[in-house]
Design a protein around this nucleic acid. Structure first.
Length: 426
RNA sequence: GUGGGAGUAGCUCAAUCGGCAGAGCACCGGACUGUGGCUCCGGACGUUGCGGGUUCAAUUCCCGUCUCCCACCCCA
């Protein structure tokens, strides 16, 4: 038997109803904040991710699905292509390519699959889904303003609340700009040098490849050492400090709760200034339900114009894990099951189904069936609210037996009143 | 990439020390062709993840492999 490949999975009903429920709520919220959808290709040139995400990140170094294009055209021959491991680089590429900055501030969102070759685990798949948004534009459009950061964070708080996700925590930090980072990395390296031999093997590796990440270490013995390390917050220059302060002030003013965490670092190279994460307890080790931050230099590093921006990505698979809502509860069942009793009744039930569906009634259609009992059983099994009986007597009278399967009450309803009667029960 | 646990019918799970692969639910048919949900009767249910090994005999023991789960790592 051919099975779905490792780390991928089929989403089946009724669970797909839950995904639709989440995505519908998300689109609603984005609309209220004046975001519009962008759809970028699922694969891009490998170089985009190498430059955008960072050569040294794990994502680029070992997790990408990359292949060489087989096209015979000289211009494409041997071009290295990659399934997108995240969507920000693609959005910024599109922003540059279509000169979107000339249209003012862009507020874009996306929903779609991403691909990383990691070892599968709860809340971690090789094809996974992200819901994300990016706000970017020329500095003159206000893209750099702390108001944008606060708006994004407030949007996220609203979204999680609206989905009924309880017990989330917003962790907030500023990772500074490139100037701060250079000075800080230097200081951090210096501080690590004498103590690193006493740390765990992972930290020893991190100290070389990406010193910031030692802050992610969970080994108890290392914690005292890490506590004593210099923090990025001490290295923020005046504009960065002010920016971060203002983000916090706005959040306080509008009542979005957050916790400052100067150990919060982001895994992707492009982040600057505001960095954040929403975590949720029910997810096990993969407790980050979403993450994001500011990336003021990304457009330029991809060869575009200056375009400060901020964005986030929600792990949709994890979001759904954190939902209390069950798939069953949002799964839409048919309003009515039409049971045709006897030969020739298919035509009449098809006509009725067509009429009812035009009125937005969800109809499941049986076929000619002599056995009424069987029809009720089928209707029951489908979870239909009503069974509509179509037999010779009904056709003659132009009124149909409509049984409410919830109350057990049955009535003869004139054809013209069927839709209204069914819809009023919903 | 590393470590641990698991894999038996569509689903949930049994199977003693290595000795005929089972149950419930679901499914199909009948009792039952205009008012069911109950009940009763019958039916189909399987490459025990896959491949090898040990044995008279393997779901059971051994080796390999795949997948899922948990954790590390990484990240959303």
């Amino acid at each position: 038997m051919i099975k779905a490949v490792r780390g991928t999975r089929d989403l089946l009903p009724p669970e797909t109803s839950l995904w639709n429920f989440v995505e519908a709520a998300v689109r609603d919220v984005f609309r209220a904040y004046n975001f519009h959808e962008i759809r970028t290709p699922i694969f891009e040139s490998t170089e985009l991710f190498a430059r955008g995400v960072g050569e040294e990140t794990d994502i680029v170094a070992k997790e990408m699905y990359t292949w060489e294009d087989k096209s015979r055209a000289a211009s494409e021959k041997g071009q290295s292509l990659t399934l997108r491991p995240e969507n920000t680089a693609g959005v910024v590429r599109a922003y540059i390519e279509h000169k979107l900055g000339e249209r003012g501030l862009q507020k874009l969102y996306y929903i779609g699959p991403q691909f990383r070759r990691e070892r599968p685990q709860k809340g971690r798949y090789r094809q996974f889904y992200q819901i994300g948004a990016e706000v970017l534009g020329p500095a003159s459009s206000g893209s750099e303003s702390p108001a944008r950061d606060a708006e994004i964070l407030e949007l996220l708080a609203t979204l999680l609340d609206r989905l009924g996700i309880e017990g989330w925590t917003l962790r907030l930090n500023s990772v500074g700009c490139s100037n701060d980072r250079a000075a800080y990395n230097e200081a951090l390296r210096k501080a690590l040098e004498p103590v690193v031999p006493n740390m765990c093997v992972d930290c020893q590796r991190r100290a070389v490849t990406n010193p910031l990440r030692v802050f992610d270490c969970k080994v108890p013995e290392d914690q005292p050492i890490i506590e004593a390390l210099p923090r990025i917050s001490q290295f923020l220059d005046e504009p960065c400090r002010k920016h971060f302060q203002e983000v916090q002030e706005i959040l306080k003013a509008i009542g979005v709760p957050f916790t400052l965490d100067d150990r919060l670092v982001r895994g992707l190279d492009y982040y600057t200034r505001t960095a954040f994460e929403f975590i949720h307890g029910s997810l096990g080790a993969q407790n980050a339900i979403l993450g994001g931050g500011r990336y003021d230099g990304l457009s330029e590093s991809l060869g575009g114009p200056p375009a400060p921006g901020i964005g986030f990505a929600i792990g949709e698979d994890r979001l759904i894990l954190a939902l209390k809502e069950t798939a069953e509860a949002v799964h839409r069942k048919p309003d009515v099951y039409i049971a045709a009793l006897g030969p020739g009744m298919d035509r009449e039930s098809a006509r009725l189904a067509r009429e009812l569906r035009r009125h937005d009634v969800i109809v499941e259609l049986g076929d000619e069936n002599f056995r009424l009992k069987k029809s009720f059983e089928t209707a029951e099994k489908l979870g239909a609210r009503f069974a509509l009986i179509v037999g010779e007597n009904e056709v003659k009278a132009n009124a149909f037996a409509l049984k409410d399967l919830e109350s057990g009450v049955q009535a003869s309803v004139p054809r013209a009143e069927l839709a209204e009667k069914i819809l009023s029960a919903r």
